[in-house]
Design a binder for these strands. Structure first.
Length: 579
DNA sequence: GCCGTTTTCGGCCCGACTGTTTTCAGTCG
């Protein structure tokens, strides 16, 4: 089993990149560390294990030097160069680079010439007018630093907006712009189009017969708190919830270039442009420049952009430079909402849901599902939403009775049992055995050590009646970090015990995330896509889990609940035990 | 620091904006 996580190695490389950058290393060396960190973080196998086997240089971006550094981490737990750099670079410098308009070069200059080594020292220097004494710095820079500090840019990380909120705002804006007479195409781009977990701001791109007129029209969109033009064919606005919006408009014959460019990701675009250079062309948001002829080709569609490079059109969800630009890449068949034949995690008014058992069942039937598992919270849940063993026994009767009434759909009686700190579920095995389906989730004692949390969750996978682990890392997007658990060990245990791992569709969970879901599926774990609906109308939240699954490159065959009821039923531990 | 349908050495993505420059470096997306 892996004793050193990919995350730990990636974190070390990212820190090395930051420190080398502040140390004035050539940018490409810094970039090499950042690339390596990303590739390690996204690797679907244990990088420590690869290193022990002497195969780690097969990972892109890992050469001899980085292999040595990983080996040092595996053997001694630390990298010597990291210690030396930490001694030489004051810890406060990295924080200063997070101010807008202040990067590593300027931080280095301020440190060397003025001895500024912290946010506090920077404020003092700016307020006393000393900052402009450094070479290449003037009063404007001093002003912008003070403005950034006063705006609190140093205190809080940039606010992120969860995907559904961003898309809702984006659709309103796009709809309004589409109604403009000059509009030809209006599309949401950026991380929202890639269906990422959250977005920093919203990119909208458009094609128009009169680009300047459409850009100016952003100011008239009701859904916005404020907006104004930003350059000739661009505009910038802010939604009422604070979400920033950038609009770019071009002529229709360049729309493909613009959409491709602003869909990103940044890493995908970098890799794409590198691949383009190898083919003798240069890509930008304006077109494709051919070295030979010196001519620029404009593309009206994204398909043309990729085709010009000899590549298939790549679904936006895959544009993260995780292998989609590799030679011989073929677009995988990605799972869709329509592939799902059942939902295995939802709540009713028995615990904290807002819809009744019958309402949930009818809504699932209306979605065309073959099966629905009712999984209310369990005996120790708290908030007055717990379900005692006796209540669960009565629920078994109610669900069975309703199942008899409903045609064409299997209604399963289940539970979302709390995984107690020692790894046991909070109902007796005897009662769990009477159910059709059991999800085990962690809802308490988040602050355990990684060792204990991992032992807790591995024990849950080993339980004979726990069929699946719900929201396996406990993260809340933009709100709460995942609890500390060795995800590789959990995946290994799930694969070994035949326990399914869930991609939870609650918009602020999407847990497992894309990287872990891909790793789990590649390890042979059956992945579940669930809504965790707390109301009938929220069964549609599976779409957010589907988005994550697609970002994980998953096809229908890797998702357990795309199977017919008969095939799915046989994947449950209780079916295997009975066989 | 990595890497090879230009290369084992010399490259390594593109363009806009800003402020400080008088030709460009740094930052950002």
């Amino acid at each position: 089993m892996a004793d050193l996580s990919n995350t730990a190695i990636a974190d070390a490389f990212d820190e090395l990149a930051d420190l080398y950058e502040l140390d004035g290393a050539v940018v490409h060396r810094v970039l090499a560390y950042r690339t390596a960190a990303k590739n390690v973080r996204n690797a679907t196998v244990s990088v420590a294990e690869l290193t022990k086997q002497g195969r780690v240089t097969s990972l892109p971006g890992i050469g001899k030097t980085l292999e040595e550094k990983i080996r040092a981490m595996v053997d001694t737990g630390t990298i010597p160069a990291l210690g030396k750099l930490r001694d030489r670079i004051p810890p406060g410098l990295a924080a200063i680079t997070r101010l807008p308009g202040v990067g590593p070069k300027r931080v280095r200059t301020m440190y060397d010439q003025l001895g500024i080594d912290s946010i506090e020292a920077l404020r003092e220097a700016a307020e006393t007018g000393r900052l402009r004494d450094a070479k290449g710095f003037g009063p404007k820079f001093e002003e912008s630093v003070l403005a950034a500090l006063d705006a609190g840019a140093a205190d809080r990380p940039a606010q992120r907006t969860v995907l559904p909120t961003a898309l809702e705002v984006g659709e309103q804006v796009a709809e309004a712009l589409r109604a403009h007479p000059a509009a030809v195409h209006v599309e949401i781009a950026g991380s929202a189009r890639r269906l990422a977990d959250s977005v920093k701001d919203l990119d909208i791109v458009a094609a128009a017969t009169d680009p300047a007129a459409l850009a100016a029209a952003l100011a008239d969109v009701d859904a916005l708190e404020s907006a104004g033009t930003a350059g000739e064919n661009a505009a910038r606005g802010r939604a009422h919830n604070g979400l920033g919006i950038d609009l770019r408009v071009v002529e229709p014959d360049q729309f493909g270039n613009l959409l491709q460019h602003f869909t990103g990701s940044a890493r995908h675009n970098v890799a794409l442009r590198e691949a383009a250079v190898r083919r003798g062309v240069h890509i930008s948001e304006y077109g494709i420049l051919d070295d030979e002829t010196g001519e620029t080709t404009r593309c009206a569609t994204e398909e043309e952009v990729y085709e010009r490079l000899g590549m298939p059109w790549i679904p936006p969800e895959l544009r993260e430079d995780r292998g989609e630009l590799a030679k011989g890449f073929e677009v995988p068949r990605l799972v869709t909402v329509e592939d799902l034949r059942g939902d295995l995690h939802c709540h009713t008014t028995l615990s904290d849901g807002r819809s009744t058992l019958e309402e949930m069942a009818r809504a699932a039937q209306a979605r065309g599902y073959e099966y629905l598992a009712i999984t209310d919270h369990s005996a120790t849940h708290g908030f007055g939403d717990h379900v005692t063993p006796d209540e669960l026994r009565r629920q078994i009767e109610r669900v069975r009775a309703l199942d008899d009434e409903i045609d064409g759909m299997h209604l399963l009686v289940g539970t979302e049992t709390n995984i107690l700190p020692d790894g046991r579920p909070d109902y007796d095995d005897e009662l769990l055995a009477e159910l059709d389906w059991v999800v085990g989730s962690v809802h308490t004692s988040f602050n355990m050590t990684e060792k204990n949390m991992t032992a807790r969750m591995v024990a849950a996978t080993e339980h004979p009646w726990i069929d699946a682990i719900g929201h396996p890392t406990g993260r809340k997007i933009a709100k709460r970090e995942p609890y500390k658990v060795d995800i590789d060990a959990l995946i290994e245990a799930a694969a070994r015990t035949g326990t399914m791992l869930e991609i939870n569709g609650a918009p602020d969970r999407r847990d497992l995330d894309d990287v872990h879901a891909r790793a789990a599926a590649e390890a042979g774990v059956n992945i579940l896509i669930d809504s965790d609906a707390h109301g009938a109308e929220r069964l549609e939240h599976v779409k957010w889990a589907v988005a994550t699954a697609r970002r994980a490159w998953l096809g229908p065959e890797q998702i357990a609940n795309t199977r017919s009821w008969k095939a799915f039923a046989g994947l449950r531990k209780r079916a295997k035990a009975a066989a």
